[in-house]
């Protein structure tokens, strides 16, 4: 059972990160590590994919890597 101090993988949390700066999928996964959220790897991938589909962030390549970002 997650405690209040654990990291929550929510749409709002992802939105806040992507407004702050462009991030790769790996950057995002680093923010929501399984040991901090208590989710499995598969759950993390599935939930993050659903959130990104809903948010439909802008995409751009930085150093040949695809980054997502949002504007307010």
């Amino acid at each position: 059972t997650p405690s209040a101090s654990d990291v929550l993988l929510t749409e709002d949390a992802v939105r806040r990160y992507l407004i702050r700066k462009p991030m790769t999928t790996k950057d995002l996964l680093k923010k929501f590590q399984t040991k901090r959220t208590g989710l499995s790897s598969e759950q993390t991938v599935n939930v993050l994919a659903q959130i990104l589909k809903r948010l439909n962030p802008e995409r751009k390549n930085i150093n040949d890597k695809m980054h997502f970002y949002l504007t307010e």
Binding site: T25, K26, S41, V45, L52
Partner: peptide, 20 residues
Amino acid sequence: SSSEADEMAAALEAELNDFM
């Protein structure tokens, strides 16, 4: 581990590729 992170990133990108 970083290889697990790589696998998760690849899985996530594969999920999103259908959508993008």
